[in-house]
Write a protein that binds this DNA or RNA. Structure first.
Lengths: 147, 147
DNA sequence: GACTGTATGTCAGACTGCTGACATGGATCA
DNA sequence: TGATCCATGTCAGCAGTCTGACATACAGTC
């Protein structure tokens, strides 16, 4: 390793944030591959596991993708029998998605796998530091104009 | 189990990290649009501005994309006359990229725009908190197996 | 010198996610 | 009631990124 003078980019919060995000994303990919799940698919399952009956648009917002992308994710998961959507909307146009029994089972396994990967990624930080990190990040979100 | 209105996902460091990353990415997109630059293109310029003569592969690693993707970025920037690459490699196969005068000018404007966006994104945090956040994140990177 | 291993640049194909657009259902208000 | 606006689901097209592959250039070993 050549010892360059630490660039200015290393001093940018955004750059380091991107770095950690990339590393975590990669770790999640590896952890989810055996379950044949992508990160967006996992995110969708996790969101539904915690808030059953969310609509496509609502899932998209919480997973930080567009409605169109989430639509494809939902379709694929529905084909695999991991979730169900009613043919007709009970109110308005929103179609509430629900996990099937299989979906819940897959989610349980995926959740533990991701949790392990995440734990490992933040292992250098003590529990107190992790809590502090989460709070600092959450503070930034709070000021963000909701998309 | 806290049954707060906030879901369990909100308690996940990874989720909040993703949230902040998405918000920052979006802000950077908006800030760079007037300059007709994408985020990867800006990243490339910024990296070259701080370490002139980096190769395609090295830029790719530091920008967290593949060599192939960075190759397209470099080509596009070269077409716009923002950087130059020698036709022949001075050593090995690595082609060192250099910013042109125009490239340096665009970088200056882009850099201030991005810096403003980043400053705004992390505005809720005091300078001390931002420093702490950067250190915490950097600690996570240190343990990551380098890609 | 020949062989092996590693790193780089580049091409081709597939996949993912996005933007733009349209139709539908509901709420609001004159 | 009719008009307007907003949110949702979905279709089509396009740009960006990735995986896989190949040829090339250097360093190390025999």
């Amino acid at each position: 390793m050549d010892q360059e003078p630490v660039g200015e980019l290393e001093l940018s919060v955004g750059y380091v944030l991107k770095q950690v995000h990339a590393s975590l994303r990669s770790a999640m990919d590896v952890a989810l591959r055996p379950l044949d799940l992508t990160v967006p698919q996992y995110a969708c399952l996790e969101l539904l596991g915690q808030s059953s009956g969310l609509s496509n648009s609502e899932l998209a917002r919480r997973a930080f993708v567009t409605r169109q992308s989430m639509n494809l994710v939902l379709r694929r998961l529905q084909e695999r029998g991991l979730l169900t959507r009613p043919d007709q909307a009970p109110h308005g146009r929103a179609l509430p998605s629900m996990l099937t029994r299989d979906g819940q089972a897959v989610l349980r396994r995926a959740s533990t796998a991701v949790r392990t990967a995440e734990k490992q990624a933040f292992a250098p930080l003590s529990p107190e530091q992790q809590l502090r990190l989460r709070r600092d990040l959450a503070a930034c979100v709070a000021s963000t104009p909701s998309s």
